[in-house]
Amino acid sequence: MIEATSCGGVVIFRGKILLLYKNYKNKYEGWVLPKGTVEEGEEYKETAIREVREETGAVASIIKYIGKSQYTFNTPQNTVLKDVHWYLMMSDSYYSKPQREEYFMDSGYYKFHEAYHMLKFSNEKQILERAYNEYVDLKKSNLWGNKKYF
């Protein structure tokens, strides 16, 4: 078994969540949250910001750490145990451009209930729920988008 670590973000702008649609060789892969592998010497926060920008083109800042999800998948050579560290992030606009090299064919911002039902993986649905609840709490407290909060 190989262990791997990724970081990603639940990116929100004006109450909507940024999702990516993956389609590899015309095979439906599903809607996902942006995430990617930690590079050597990189902090988790840096990975999350970089991966969001690379995969979606969105410029986003971290609001707070949301938690970790874990899953396994098989490659022809091995089983991979992957930890993903997630951050609640705020974007500066609705702009997004899917990274074609990673087989992302579409991206966009969706209302919570739409995003929840579009997401392919249950662990990402749980992270989305947690992040969105944090967002709602911050919004109620007038802390969302308040630079003092950072």
Rank of each mutant, 00 (worst) to 15 (best):
L18K: 07
Y109N: 07
L18M: 13
M90E: 07
G145R: 10
L19R: 02
I12F: 13
F112D: 04
S141F: 11
G8W: 01
E40S: 12
F104L: 04
H113R: 05
Y24H: 15
G9R: 01
F121N: 06
A48C: 10
T56F: 06
Y95K: 02
T47K: 04
H117D: 04
L119F: 07
G57L: 10
E40Y: 13
I63C: 03
K148G: 13
L81R: 03
N142P: 02
N142H: 10
R100V: 15
A115F: 02
G41S: 09
V32E: 01
K22T: 05
P98C: 11
E55V: 03
Y149V: 15
A58S: 10
G15A: 14
S61V: 15
R100T: 10
L33M: 12
K25M: 14
G57S: 11
Y87R: 10
Y103C: 11
N78K: 05
E39T: 05
R53I: 00
T5Q: 13
G108I: 01
V52S: 01
Y132G: 00
F104W: 06
T47V: 07
V80C: 10
R50D: 06
L138E: 12
S107K: 01
V10N: 01
V52Q: 03
T37Q: 12
Y110R: 03
W31V: 03
D92S: 15
M89C: 12
E54P: 01
L143M: 11
E29I: 13
Y109V: 00
A115V: 08
Y71Q: 05
E134C: 00
Y116K: 03
E102S: 14
K147P: 04
V80H: 08
Y135M: 03
Y135L: 03
D106P: 05
Q126E: 12
G8E: 05
I66P: 00
